[in-house]
Computed example of a mutant assay.
Amino acid sequence: MLVAQGKLFAGSGANYQIVKVKLHASGILCYTDASDDIVEYKHEELIISDKLGTIPREIILPNKTLLVMNSEPFLDSWLSAGKKDVSKWEKSAKAVIGSIVAIPVTLYFIFAVVIPQMAVVFAPYIPDVFVELSSRHTMTAMDKTVLNPSEADLEKITALESQWYSLLANMDLDSEKYNILFRHTKMMGPNAFALPNGTIVFTDQLLELVDYDEEILTAIFMHEIGHVENHHSMRLISQTLATSIAITYIFGDVSGFFDFFASVSNTIATNQFTQKLEWEADEFALEQLRATGAEPVSFARGMKKFAEYADSENSLIAEDLEKILSSHPLTKERIANALEFAGVSESAFADMEVEIQKNKDALKAQSETEFEQLKTDLPK
């Protein structure tokens, strides 16, 4: 029989009773409680913490009280009876080195592979109520902060809306699900973004950047539809939530949940999709442009406009735009991908851009001439 001293915590507080614990070779642990009653438990009834260096051993008794005893060789031997001794791994150099390598690799696999795949699977099953609520909250917040009513040409944006709703019907998509909006903004610059519920927003600055070019704007519209149809916002939010859960489980930090819910609106609004999601939306746009009889090269033209804007020395928010695009694939790569899909070489694309610009200049000159002629013909 072995005798040792321990601390008996009867409740959840810090108060404890010093008890003399007897450990019998037959596997019986006994001690005398505060009422001078002898309490006995079998070894298999105990929940025993693993040995970790010289840290005191914790034993949860069947009556839910906690017994804490200093780690001693004889005590460790008795407590470990019938159990595998994992403490020897602490002294193994191979085990330590293996853990140093295995833990980061495992964490990377969880956060880079498992969680994104889980997000793909579960995103479509997020309740519509949450999708609608998060989208409306985001739009309301943006309208109060960074967005203003559109100042764009009403006739032109009405024509775009009509064209795009017809396009949605031709694509066998629920046109009622989508809500096309136009907003003026100084902070976001030329931009378009999609909310999870199908709200797609174009800024006046984007319309001006592409000179209301219907083909380019339709290509960008297709790209945003790709985000909605592939549940990209919800996948990103699901991934954020799953990451918070994983961090909480692994590190025991519940603050991640509060950070997650506080950042949902910002996550959607900034449209910071990962490069993989951007490529998916690009591919969706290119395929749908071809399927609807439009030119996939229009997407390359739109990306070229963004690239020129970002490189412009006269752009006051070029740096901000670069930050917006930081999680996107490189614009040059996206242009090259669109040209390859369309079967157009870079030289042919350059010639096409020159020809389009010539036609626009000619139409503009013709309109100005007709306007001047009209003024001349007016009675004086």
Rank of each mutant, 00 (worst) to 15 (best):
I28W: 02
I28P: 04
L173M: 11
H184D: 09
T145Q: 12
Q17P: 00
G252N: 07
L321K: 03
L241M: 09
D85C: 04
E340R: 12
P329C: 09
E278K: 10
D213C: 11
T248E: 00
W89R: 14
Y165N: 08
V105L: 15
Q288Y: 04
E278V: 03
V39I: 15
E353I: 13
V105F: 06
Y108F: 15
A123P: 00
A338I: 03
F182A: 03
A219T: 01
S77H: 08
F371K: 14
K7C: 06
K22D: 01
A336C: 01
A159S: 12
I100M: 15
S315A: 11
M142F: 00
A194M: 08
S166P: 04
E295Y: 13
A246V: 12
V19W: 05
M171Q: 02
V86F: 11
I216Q: 12
I126S: 00
T267V: 12
A300W: 15
A336D: 14
L339I: 06
L67H: 10
I60F: 07
P127L: 13
M222Y: 06
L241V: 10
I110R: 04
P62I: 14
S135R: 06
N70D: 08
A336V: 07
T270N: 08
L181E: 07
V120W: 09
N271P: 00
K375F: 04
F122N: 06
L241Y: 02
V39N: 06
I356F: 10
I200E: 02
E72N: 06
L66M: 11
S134V: 12
T106W: 03
V113M: 10
A93I: 11
A119E: 11
F349H: 02
T203N: 05
I60Y: 04
I59V: 12
F349C: 02
A192S: 09
G13V: 06
Q117N: 07
A262S: 15
S35Y: 04
E280K: 06
F9N: 03
A294C: 01
S326C: 07
S367D: 03
M234Q: 11
F260K: 01
